[in-house]
Design a protein around this nucleic acid. Structure first.
Lengths: 208, 208
DNA sequence: ATTATATCGTGAAATTAAGAACGATTGTTC
DNA sequence: GAACAATCGTTCTTAATTTCACGATATAAT
């Protein structure tokens, strides 16, 4: 257990998978789980799981495994601390509406707090507890709702525009669902999710 | 330009980004593009782009760059050959409905060809040109529609069940939108897309 | 023609991620 | 309480990916 190392984003991604799995096990009244069991449930290897967990400074007990409640608390503390993630959505079309309804974005730890759209007919409406605002009010609304991450769900022609608004409002993270790359200043992280690309690359893999 | 090397799935993923970018440029009547320009547009580095392109056996001309039409054709040939990807959807709830409407899945190269749901009220309906079938007909319908990849958009409790059906029908690729890991036999590739995890891991990154 | 310059292609180095091996620890059994 | 089995934590290896460095080539300018 060396000195505090930087934890890679891959490890953090897997930590969230462990957390998801542990939640399920806790619901089924499990008390302990071993790296081997987690490996079977997640499709990862036991070594990798042990390595990840040890990087979070959490120790299990040989022959028994990890105490689920403790491990869960450790991971939660590490990846979320006591923060809540606030999301703001740009574009309430087909995809945007689905995002508004997605139950994962209305949890205690992650909340969708505001939506923006250009169309006058949508502005002012409240969907699933989230109000739709005009694009003109972005900085003010983002500040008031403590937004953390912006979601781009506008047509690809407006994607850069939305990204600029997000940057202007001071947000440091963007998830971009539009099928177009956007450019942002250093210090802002963009995660692209282009379904077409995800599917095609899987297809290429499979076709081997 | 060594002997034919295996092309990694990372490279293929980026090739699809290049393709998307080239399409945009072609629409704007560009004829040539350099690796540096592509780098600025995609956020990748010029070296990586050149290396990727050279792995597809495509050569550019110094001082000029790549001829867009040629590069586009090369990439298309390589990643898609003349195939069309056929997707079949499991679960027509909120997310499933959004997927049915997503325009990216009704292109010449990628088509959503069938959907399945348990609810009798949905079976038989046609949404966006796609018929919704009963879960009992999976193998037959998948075979008839030449399905390639299965999409899991059912509640997490039924995710494994859907995965089993997909495997049974002989498909080799799964995109899993349910927030639960599924286990499949060797030879079947699963790509998990858990929005909650994507957002949280971005948040962890940003908070550094 | 010669020089200058932008761009390409690629082998080598560096970085990062994953996997294998193995001693150490804890609970169990007789 | 001694031997065994299951599981952990960690170091060392191996593999994959990215970045660096630099020579080669095509166009443009003088």
């Amino acid at each position: 257990m060396g000195p505090m190392k930087k934890i890679s984003s891959k490890t953090i991604g897997r930590a969230l998978i462990y957390l998801r799995t542990l939640d399920g096990l806790a619901k089924q009244r499990w008390r302990y789980v071993s790296s081997g069991q987690l490996a079977r449930m997640t499709g990862l290897t036991d070594v990798q799981i042990r390595k990840d967990i040890s990087s979070f400074r959490k120790v299990g007990t040989p022959k028994v495994g990890y105490k689920i409640a403790d491990l869960k608390r450790t991971l939660e503390d590490f990846v979320l601390q006591e923060n809540v993630v606030h999301l703001v959505l740009f574009g309430v079309g087909n995809l945007g509406s689905a995002i508004l309804k997605y139950p994962g974005f209305h949890q205690p730890k992650m909340k969708l707090v505001a939506a923006f759209d250009q169309s006058a007919s949508k502005i002012g409406k409240v969907v699933n507890g989230v109000r739709i605002y005009s694009m003109e009010n972005v900085p003010h609304v983002v500040h008031r709702t403590h937004g953390d991450i912006g979601i781009i769900a506008v047509p690809k022609e407006s994607a850069q525009e939305a990204a600029d608004l997000i940057v202007l409002a001071g947000l440091k993270g963007i998830v971009n669902f539009a099928p177009a790359s956007v450019t942002v200043p250093k210090g802002v992280r963009v995660k692209d999710i282009d379904f077409t690309i995800e599917f095609l690359s899987l297809f290429c893999d499979v076709r081997t």
